[in-house]
Structure formats: C-alpha cells, structure tokens
Design a binder for these strands. Structure first.
Lengths: 208, 208, 208, 208
DNA sequence: GATGAATGAGCCTTCATTCAT
DNA sequence: TATGAATGAAGGCTCATTCAT
C-alpha cells in the first residue's frame, strides 16, 4: 500500500521528505503546492519524488494516511478517558494536543488544511479514515463523561457542543496569533492560565 | 488608490467584472484563480482586466477593499445596536448576516476565503482594513450591551467571547454542511429553530 | 471544428506552423515528436501552439484532417479517370502524385507515417476519413477501367492488385533511394524512362 | 565488437534479455522503447543492462547485429537454391520465411521496424550489414534461376523485380491484416491457397 | 558481478502579463 | 478604450544513465 521504495529509506531522510511535503501542502493547498519546492526543501533530486510516489496525488494521499496514523497513535490514543469531567477532559486534551503540535507542527497544519480545503477528490478508503479519525476524536472527547455534572435545566448534548465550539474558537484565535512565530520561543504559561480561567467560567455556567 | 479607469465604467459593467472576479477567487483561492475565467465570465477582453487593474494581485486587493466596504455598509451598519441583550443581539446579527449573504453570496464567500487562506502577503493598509473590519464588527457586537444580565459569578468579558466562539462554531458547522448545496433550495426554518434553542441554553447558563 | 484562433492567422504563418508540425510528426512519430521543436522551427512562442491547438493530440488530428483534405483536393481529384487503360492510368497517377509531392513533401510524408504507425487512437470520424481517403484513391484507380484489355486466361482482379503492388514497390524503392536528397536537385527524366519501361513489361505480360 | 560481459552470460539469460529488448524495440520504436520495461521483462537489475551494453543505442545496435546473424543463419541460408523456377523459388522462400517467423517472431518484427523507422543514425558498419543482408537475400532469390522460363518479349531483370515487388506487396497486406492478432490462432491454409493463385497468375503472365 | 536509488534534462501544458492593432 | 495574439517561466512528470553499495 505504501511505496516500498520510500519505506526503505533511512528514517531521517523519510522525515525530511515528509516534512518538506507536509509543509508545502499545508501552506499552499494541493494544487498550488509545488513538487519542485518539495524536492528542493527535502534536498533530493527532481526525479526521486516520483520514484518514491509516482505522482503528486499519491504523495498527497500518502501524507494523509501518514498524518492520520501519527495523530491517532501520538495524540488521540494518549487522551486519558478516565476523567469523567467534560471540561477537565478538554483541559487534558489541550495539553496532549499542544505536546503533539510541538513535536509535529507540520502534521497538525497539514491535516487541518485537508479538512478545510477539500480540493482533491479522495479515494473512499481515505475519506473513511478521515471520518473515522474524527469519530475517534469525538469518542475520546465524550466517552465516559459524567452528564450529571451539568445543570438540570439545559440540554446536555447542546451544552457539550457549545462548550467544544467555545474551546475550538479560543484555540483558533491563539493559533492565528502565533502564526509565523516560532512556537518554541513563546512563553506559554500565561496562556495556560488564561485557558484555565475560561474553563472555570464554563464550569461555573454549565455545571450544577 | 482605486484605479480610475475602472471606476469610470458604467456600474453594471463594474458589477459584472467584480462578481466574476469575486467568485473565481472565492472558489479557487488566489493562485489557482484564473484571469482567463474572470474575463470570460465578465465578458470583457483579456487586455482590459490588466488595463483596469495592472496585475492579478492589484485586482485581488481591490476586491478586498471593495468587499470590506460593502460589508461595512450593507451588513455591519445595519446591525441594530439598541438591543442591549447580548444573546438577542447575536440573534439579530445572524439574521442580518443571512440577508446580506443572500444578496451578496460572492462577497461573503470571497471575504471568508481571504481570512482563511492568507495565501497572499497583503500590504499593511489592507491588513489594517481587515483588522478594522473585525474591530467594527466587534463594536457592533458589544456596543451598548447590558452586562448586568450576566451572572455575577463570572467574568463578563470572558463570557462574551465564549458565547461568540460558540455561535461561530455552530455557524461554521452549518456552512460546512451547506457547502455545495444551493442555499436557496434549503428550508432554513428548522435551522433557525435549532439556533434559538442553542441561544436559550446559553441564556440559561450565562445569564442570571 | 478547426480552431478559429489558428484559422485567423495569415496564411504564410499557418503554412510555417503546419509544415514544421507535419515534418516533426512525419520524422519522429506522434509520441516522439517534440512540440518544442515544432515551435522552434515554426518561429513562434512556446505558448502559442497550445493557444491555437489546446493539445499535442488536437494538433495531430488537425494535421490529419488537413492532410486528407489537401490530398483529396490537390492530388486525387486531379486524376483523369477517362483513361480506361489501367497501366496508362497508373502512369498518369504517378505523374500527378509526383507533382503533388513536389509541392507538399511534408504532407505526403506525414500521411504515410500516420498509416504506418497507428500510435494514436484516433476518433472515429478521423478513422473514417482515412478509410474514405483510401477508398477514394482506389476508386480513382479502378473507376472506368476497361478489363477487356487484359488476357483472358488470368483473373483480372488479381492482375490489378499484382500490378498495383509492383508499382508501389518500385516507387517505394525510389523513395528510399531519394531519402535525404533534395528531390529538386535530381534529374528525374531517366527515372521516368525506366518507369515507362517497367510499365511496358507489365503491358506485354498482362495484356492481350 | 560485441560486449564480452554479455557474451559470457549463460545462454538462457542472454536469450531472455535479447527477447525482452527485441520485443520492446519492435513494439515501440527506438526512442519510445523503455529500458525500464526491458530490464523488468528480462528479470535483471537496471544497472546490468548498462553494464552489458553501455547505452541504449549500443544495445539497439547489438540487436541489429544479432538479428542480421540469426536471419542469415536460420532463414536465408535455408533457402533451397536448387529450384531454378523463379516463382517456385518465391513460394519456397515464403514457406521458409513463415517458419522462421513462427520460431523468431520478435526478431522478424524487430528487423522490420528497423528498416521502416530509421529513427536512429546507424554506424556505417551496420548500414553495410543491413545492405549486405538484403544483397544476400537477393542472391538467394536470384541465384541459379533459369531465365529461359520467361517470355522472350520482356526484359527478364525487370520482370524479376516486378514479380518480387508484387509478392512483397501481397505479403505486406497480409502482415497488416494480421497485425495485433495472434498468428498462431489463424488458419493459414486459405491464405496459402490464395498465394498460390497469385503465383499462378504471375506464371501465366510472365512465363512462356 | 549485480542492484536499484539518484540525477537532471527534457517532455507537454498552463497562465499572468504585454503589446500591436 | 478595447481586443486577443504572443511570450516564457513554471508546473508535474519520464527516462536514459550513473554510482554507491
């Protein structure tokens, strides 16, 4: 399924190529991404990319598959589902997510661009994997949550979603703010503090 | 600042060109948009586009400027700021926004794609205008709001933002759902109903 | 059907492009023909070829159509079918053919390469035209021929074909011999003389 | 002259490589032939082909040399020159030729494509060998022929050639007809019968 | 000997931009 | 003003050939 010519490369080279490609696609979208730029940044010859992947599209689909796998293994599966408090769960997810982002910034940006753009008609098995990834993410989010913590006078499902949207909105705003900056160079502590304050407001409002 | 050659055109022709361009950019992004398609849909010769605008980029920036102006005049300025209830204000904004979208779908889609994509490095004056647009939007949102409606045990500013993010998240989800469909063909009533339910949950939770 | 952008060119330029293309395709076949070489020899910019023709394949098909038309009008239709003597008919055809070749060498070579190579899957209407061209050629060859000139002890149809094949073989041999030489620089008279001698042998053998 | 590295291979491997190459060149012509396909079909590594032959062109020329030799030894030298009747000689040659084709279809197709295409500028020694092959073929055709069988009122040399051209024309037509079909699946008897009828017409016409 | 990864020139094609008319 | 023909750089991709292993 995955190109054996590529998988036989030593890992650092694979990583160099994958990162160059993930970044190029994330920044420019599928069509506008330039394989020329990719090979230049990856430091490989013009022909090799097509020796490994046969076509731009195959490379793109390989990246999606790769991103899905790594997100599953190194992000979603690390979420602790024993925490029954929805908002504390969200806090923990944010922490794992940030760690993942720091280790795989290009993967995060790339998979985001895939969901946003849908420039490319993907084969069904990839469409399914993307949907599955989302479902798995939701299950990590909602599984084993204790609904009795919520006020009795509101619809809990609606509350779930409103809270999730709030958090996502907050995180998007931060992402936007940090865009272009080296994340490593930012002192994140004040942001965590602020985040916790937002979570407290949510608890106060939505919980009993 | 705006090309005088273009502004001297009779208005219907201007509209034809602008709409052709707005649509092309909204659908394909900056790089992928084709000037050939634009002139074809606008019904003008290839040379004229570059006579009016000098370059693809200048056209794009003109469109941003144009979109900002029209959104200011025909959307933001129509918001009724006499409504002091924050959540009722949001409801009213949603209604005005939908009306604007129905009358100017290409403008709405275009400006959305500009915020999302940031393919192009914009000149500072446009960056500023975009920020100003957002600020103006926020002022329409927050001006004259009665904070005393909110519970006393939460930070009202944080509540404002959490609520706004919730609503935006909900609206994004709908936008995504409607993508590709003819909006005119959708019966919106059930969505309004659902929207109001969400607003009620917010009121119950955040208000006294 | 034929690209209007190309047909609007002044004729000398059209000819320059057509000849460059006919030659390139005749010499190298469809796949190996280089559009780069064509534009270089035609003295036009790289993009123009695709402005006129949209694709290499469309150019190729245009050339086939063009070659068929010109061969029909300036070669086959000039054959005098009032001559009932089969071998004299062949003599006359050879003369017309040579004249045509001198005026349109690239067309002749091109259409020959098309029949030989069948590299490209042609659309049915072109397939049909090519077959029709051959049929028309045969009709010019056989129409109104007097079979009673042939000996009674042989099958006249078989004789027709044997004679045709002889002549074609002779002509192919000459074509091969002249390959690469400037045909204009060759004194053809001795070849005509030799040709007539061959025709005489055929008459002696196959006629009463 | 022939690469010693290649000649040291055991014969089955040589054959595998030669057949893979002959077929690829015969089917696609020189330029369009893919060395990748050749090594794949030959079951050898990419590097070895260029170890044995140094370049695609050298391989091609080796194949020409090889084809000439095998045609000489296993086709032309098998022609029975004791038959003094020209037309019976032709019949016998056709039979030997068909046998050879059945045993070496790739060689036959390859050498045919070489004569037709002349894509490649061959070195003089190969040009000469090709000419010699033809000469040798002609000598097998004409040697020991009894000219007194021919009518007295025609030039016998011209008759020889006319007859040869006829036969070649007939055979080309058949080759064309069979193109793409599995020759083994065709019942050839009716074609032999027809062939003999043509030969009879020729005898009746050209012999006393 | 043997492999196949690596290279880079060249392929067809698109497209913003210019310019003669 | 208005047209659209003309340009050439850049796009994705292929392939003979080389070379480290």
């Amino acid at each position: 399924m995955t190109p054996p010519t590529f998988n036989n490369l030593d890992e650092t080279k694979q990583k160099r190529i994958l990162n160059a490609a993930l970044q190029e696609f994330a920044e420019n979208g599928y069509e506008q991404a330039s394989t020329n730029q990719i090979v230049k940044h990856a430091g490989i010859g013009k022909g090799m990319l097509f020796y490994y992947f046969k076509s731009k599209k195959e490379l793109y689909q390989y990246l999606i598959d790769y991103a899905i796998n790594i997100m599953t293994k190194e992000f979603l599966s690390l979420i602790d589902v024993s925490e029954p408090d929805f908002i504390d769960r969200l806090r923990q997810i944010a922490s794992v997510k940030l760690k993942f982002f720091n280790e795989n910034p290009s993967v995060t940006n790339f998979i985001g661009s895939v969901y946003l753009a849908d420039e490319v008609k993907l084969p069904v098995h990839l469409q399914k994997q993307l949907t599955d990834l989302q479902s798995y993410g939701y299950s990590m989010l909602y599984e084993n949550i204790d609904p009795t913590l919520f006020r009795d006078d509101i619809n809990v499902d609606k509350a779930f979603r409103l809270i999730r949207w709030s958090i996502e909105g907050y995180q998007n705003e931060l992402t936007n703010e940090f865009k272009g900056k080296q994340i490593a160079s930012v002192d994140l502590d004040p942001y965590w503090e602020e985040f916790y304050e937002y979570l407290d407001v949510l608890k106060t409002s939505f919980y009993k």
